[in-house]
Amino acid sequence: MARKKLETLTEQMYYVLLALSGPPRHGYGIMQAVSERTQGRVNVGAGTLYALLGRFETKGLIRQAAAHDVRKYYVLTDAGRRALVKEYQRLKRQVEDGQDILEGGTAP
C-alpha cells in the first residue's frame, strides 16, 4: 500500500504536520489551521485527521503535549520536524525541476 511507511506524504498529511510545527493544537484546531493556511483549498475531515494523528503518534512524528477538556493537544517531535522538512524539500525540488521548463520555455 502506498505511503505505508510515510516515506512520502499526501497533501493532507503534509498540511497536518505543518499545522503542528508551531504551538500545540488540538484536533479541530488543526483542521481550522489547515483550512486557513490553504484558504479552503485543502480540508481534512475529522475521521481522516483522527486516523492520521494516530499514525503520526505511532511513528513518533508527533506527541501529546497536553490535554484540556478531554481534548488532546499535539505537537511535532524532532522526527516529525525532520519528516516535514524532508517532504518540503522534496516538493521544492519538484517545483524547481518543472520551473525552467514550464515557466522558462526550456526543453526537457
Binding site: 500500500m1 502506498a2 505511503r3 499526501t10 493532507q12 483542521m31 483550512s35 480540508n43 481534512v44 475531515g45 475529522a46 475521521g47 481522516t48 486516523a51 492520521l52
Partner: peptide
C-alpha cells in the same frame, strides 16, 4: 457546513 468526515480514500479504506 462541515467538510466530509472522510477525505482520504486510503484512510477510509483502512478504517
Amino acid at each position: 457546513d462541515p467538510a466530509p468526515i472522510q477525505t482520504d480514500p486510503e484512510v477510509e479504506y483502512q478504517r
